[in-house]
């Protein structure tokens, strides 16, 4: 039995994922919005980068899409529309745990930030890659092993390393294993939460190249979370800039990087050192952060 995974494609006219007015708050403080009215979309086969500092709500947004928010938090309002090939457009926030579990790892996959901590140390990497294949596609025995081998080779690890435990691999290799796990079922949406932040620049360059190759080959939509504008410049099609839970600017890569409109985006870009060393660094003036400003007010304050 061979499994042909590329037969179904989602409807081309609609975006792959569409967030509409998503807000997240702690259950005990429903008025304190950690993510405030966030809307953006991801096209089929394109990469949308979410950029922001720590605490801007970018990881929470990703977890909300996956339905992985902590019990302390609640989604108050908003829809997450996923364009599924088989079932049409579905609102992920309305699904029960069982149906979500069927989607996760199969149609929507995620790569986490820390390759050191997100693999199980007592299981071989081959087993961990195979887990979702067994669960979602029912692969077993020979078929499973050959699929695992081909996945490992796809991410540039020799197939015999399937028998290795995570501690026998380097950081870059572990992140490749994470990637192999996430693409195992050929998801139509891949969420990558700072997948290269913990890695060396040379390894980072390899991983970014690998991700963009896979994206093209599988026609995968990607939500890529990062705080590094250099990475954005390399892989993004569209960019969303978040600040204190709100989107302050969004647009195509060229629009946001070359012609930023919001003062916060400008300030953030001015912080990035350039490779030529010609630019003077200008740190963000945080004096206006002390009060309880919203993003719009902060923007005004920065103009002055």
């Amino acid at each position: 039995m061979t499994v042909d995974l590329q037969t179904k494609q989602p409807a081309q006219s609609l975006p792959l994922l569409q967030l509409e007015h998503v807000s997240i708050s702690p259950k005990k403080m429903p008025h304190r919005l950690l993510v405030n009215d966030v809307s953006f979309s991801i096209e089929i086969g394109k990469t949308t980068c979410v950029v922001g500092e720590s605490g801007s709500g970018k990881s929470l947004t990703a977890l909300a899409i996956m339905g992985l928010l902590s019990n302390q938090l609640t989604l108050n309002g908003g829809r997450v529309l996923f364009n599924d090939a088989e079932n049409g457009v579905i609102d992920l926030t309305k699904l029960d745990d069982e149906s979500l579990r069927k989607l996760r790892g199969d149609k929507i996959a995620m790569i986490f930030q820390e390759p050191m901590t997100s693999l199980n140390p007592v299981l071989t990497v081959g087993y961990q890659i195979g887990e979702s294949l067994t669960t979602h596609l029912g692969l077993r025995g020979e078929h499973l092993n050959s699929k695992i081998a081909s996945l490992l080779e796809m991410v540039g690890i020799p197939a015999e390393r399937a028998q290795s435990y995570p501690d026998e691999l380097s950081g870059g290799q572990r992140q490749r294993v994470m990637i192999a796990m996430s693409i195992a079922c050929e998801p139509s949406l891949l969420i990558a939460d700072e997948p290269t932040t913990a890695l060396d620049v040379t390894v980072q360059a390899q991983i970014l190249k690998l991700l963009s190759e896979l994206k093209t080959r599988m026609n995968m939509g990607m939500l890529f979370i990062t705080h590094d504008f250099g990475v954005v410049a390399d892989i993004a099609d569209n960019v969303v800039v978040m600040f204190r839970g709100q989107i302050v600017e969004s647009g195509t890569r060229e629009q946001v990087l070359c012609n930023p409109q919001h003062p916060y985006t400008k300030a953030l870009l001015a912080c990035v050192p350039d490779a030529e060393g010609e630019k003077r660094l200008k740190p963000i003036d945080y004096s206006w952060l002390t009060g309880d400003h919203t993003a719009a007010e902060a923007g005004e304050a920065m103009h002055e």
Binding site: V201, T202, Q204, A205, L208, D228, F229, G230, V231, V232, A233, D234, R253, E254, L257, C258, P260, L269, V272, D274, A275, E276, G277
Partner: peptide
């Protein structure tokens, strides 16, 4: 060194800087 990296490893490192081509 940035202008003319001699060793191949240095050249690799410099080539790996993300976002070299588009600059904001």
């Amino acid at each position: 060194i940035y202008a003319e990296p001699e060793h191949s490893y240095t050249q690799n490192l410099l080539a790996a800087i993300p976002g070299k081509h588009v600059n904001g």
